[in-house]
Simulated scan of single mutants.
Amino acid sequence: MQSVAAALTMVRDDAFFLKAWLRYYGGIFGRENCYIVNHGRGDEVAALADGCNVIGIPGDPHPNFDMKRWRLLNNLVQGLRCYYTHVVVGDVDELVVVDPGDGRTLLEYLREARPRRFLTPLGLEVIHRIDLEKEEISDRILGPRRHVRLAPHYSKPCIVSHGAKIARGGHFSQYDKIHAPDELYLFHLKFCDFRNYTEVMNARNAVTESVGADVQTSSIGRHWFAEARGEDRAVFEAFSDLEMKAGFDLGWVRKRMHRSWGPRGETGFWSFARPEYEQQYVVPDRFLGVI
């Protein structure tokens, strides 16, 4: 039984992403070290997460859903830190990966990592190039999908071994230093599969419609609202317009993160600049099958 690292997420009916999350973190940390908040106490979530630590909570819709969610996750992280050195926390469609060229699993990496800090993996968004990638996703995502785009918004301080507070959405923390190791990546999976994307967005739009919330007055991300969604196929077709970059040396991105690091106004949180990079990369073969 290990006490080096635990993984924590909250999910409501996202079986596609939960299966990937469980395969990855359950395989590396052990299911007994995986903690899942089952929002709405869904039967499918409970069945898929068998062997994990499942916390069922009411699923009543609320316009400040995201604010409540991160208040709960913040407190769970700090409680778990009493028993684990590191806690990896994030959305169910986010997976933290150590570059396979390093030779260590995430658990092995964290066993040797210095504690009492936040670690910030480099955010990469897995994109489904529907013009090139016809293979369906089964038990692995990287393989059928080979393309990623830079996603500074998902370079999150998500590996926690310090008592500082995390902001709503997990994008910032009140820890005043940045540690962004070269070996760490966060793969965001929202756009990894066109068919699943449309199903998930339909479900999320139904939630916001049921609470009568709008983009301006609620504490829910814009992507949950039908009016901010756009046309699904056009979103995916546009990925082919992103500039294709050769190689996979992303050290320059981490340098920019360090250079722009500073306080986020008077909020007590710290952050780096998050420009939009209209670029895509093909992941090296060493990453295939990792998630």
Rank of each mutant, 00 (worst) to 15 (best):
Q2N: 15
V4F: 00
A6P: 01
A7I: 02
T9S: 13
M10L: 15
V11D: 03
R23G: 05
Y25P: 01
Y25H: 03
Y25Q: 06
G26P: 09
F29Y: 00
E32R: 09
N33H: 08
N33V: 03
N38P: 12
R41H: 12
E44D: 14
A47D: 06
L48N: 11
G51M: 01
I57W: 15
N64G: 07
F65S: 11
L72R: 14
G79W: 14
G90A: 01
G90S: 03
V92S: 05
D93I: 11
V96L: 03
V98I: 00
D102I: 03
T105D: 08
T105M: 07
L106A: 05
L106V: 02
L106G: 04
R111E: 13
P115I: 12
R117K: 11
F118H: 15
F118P: 07
L119D: 07
P121T: 00
I127C: 11
E133F: 06
I137V: 12
I137F: 05
S138N: 13
D139Y: 03
R140M: 06
R145C: 06
L150H: 04
Y154D: 04
Y154L: 08
V160W: 06
V160D: 04
F172Q: 15
F172W: 11
Q174G: 07
Q174N: 09
I178W: 02
I178P: 04
A180Q: 01
A180M: 05
P181C: 00
P181M: 08
E183S: 08
L184A: 02
L186S: 06
D193M: 03
D193S: 14
D193N: 15
F194E: 12
Y197T: 02
T198L: 14
A206K: 07
A206M: 03
T208V: 15
T208F: 05
G212S: 07
D214N: 15
T217V: 09
S219W: 11
I220K: 06
G221E: 14
R222T: 12
R222N: 14
H223R: 13
F225K: 12
F225L: 12
A226M: 04
R229C: 05
E231H: 00
A238E: 13
L242A: 06
F248H: 05
L250T: 05
G251I: 11
G251M: 08
G251N: 10
H258F: 15
H258T: 12
R259W: 11
G265K: 03
T267Y: 14
T267R: 09
F269D: 10
F272S: 08
A273G: 12
Y277L: 12
I291P: 00
